[in-house]
Design a protein around this nucleic acid. Structure first.
Lengths: 129, 129
DNA sequence: ATTGACTTTTACGTAAACGTAAAGTATAGT
DNA sequence: ACTATACTTTACGTTTACGTAAAAGTCAAT
């Protein structure tokens, strides 16, 4: 029943293409809390830890601040028994979704702009042949 | 014919909600090149400068580094007579578009995840009423 | 048993992106 | 003429997010 899938720090570092220092840094600032392997004191990362790291890196990729990333992660770790917490999480999530919609639209605009340029450039190139 | 719409540094700072230092910094690192007002040596920003600043800030919002933003802006300012430059711009643009597609897809996934959580939370809340 | 490849902690270093303070200049209003 | 406001340059300070090096421990393999 207990699958016990774990990872070493360098396994995660390789998988996500970041340095071990980076992963330790996220622990330093309180975003990760891996367990330790008794004797050698090695960090062991569970699948949950791995998921958290993934979230952190994903957030970073979109320019979210550490504070925002932390709030987003908290959204995924709400206690289902705390009704107030659930309500707040929904509220927070709705804000986030609205922001995501805006970002998606903006990215589409940037894409369209680039493609428009592309077309213009292509025409110029074809004309001068 | 010449509309001559110009802006002072604080006008732009207010409009985009950044500090004047930030705008001067972008000049310092070569992203902006405003003209000067003869006697007082004041910076004057044209609409083109304003557009550039807008691009810079938009890029920043998505976590692009200033270096990347600079490359994207260069895409918008290619000399149409330089065929090689055009080809390189197209190539670069295509890379960018691929990245944008990835980002859009990822953002949609994040959105979906949040909405899935939302539904789960709503069900819990309704059940306990 | 020693080499190599990992890991650990401690700690100083660094680049990016500004913040902030000092000291001076220009201009408009009273 | 004085004051307020906005601008200028110079330059040191600060935060974030790690990089990097040193010294030591663990583990498997030769």
């Amino acid at each position: 029943m207990n699958e016990q899938v774990t990872y070493t720090i360098s396994e995660l570092a390789n998988e996500f293409d970041v340095s071990t220092r980076t992963i330790r840094y996220y622990e330093e600032v309180g975003f990760l809390h891996p367990g330790r392997k008794g004797d050698s004191n090695q960090r062991i990362y569970t699948r949950k830890d791995r998921g958290r790291l993934k979230l952190i890196l994903r957030g970073k990729r979109f320019g979210f601040s550490l504070k925002e990333i932390n709030e987003m992660i908290n959204l995924y770790e709400v206690d289902p028994d705390q009704k107030e917490q659930l309500k707040k999480a929904i509220e927070y999530g709705d804000k986030r979704v609205a922001e995501l919609d805006e970002m998606i639209e903006e990215l589409k605009l940037i894409k369209k702009e680039i493609l428009d340029f592309r077309e213009k450039f292509m025409l110029i190139l074809e004309d001068t042949q």
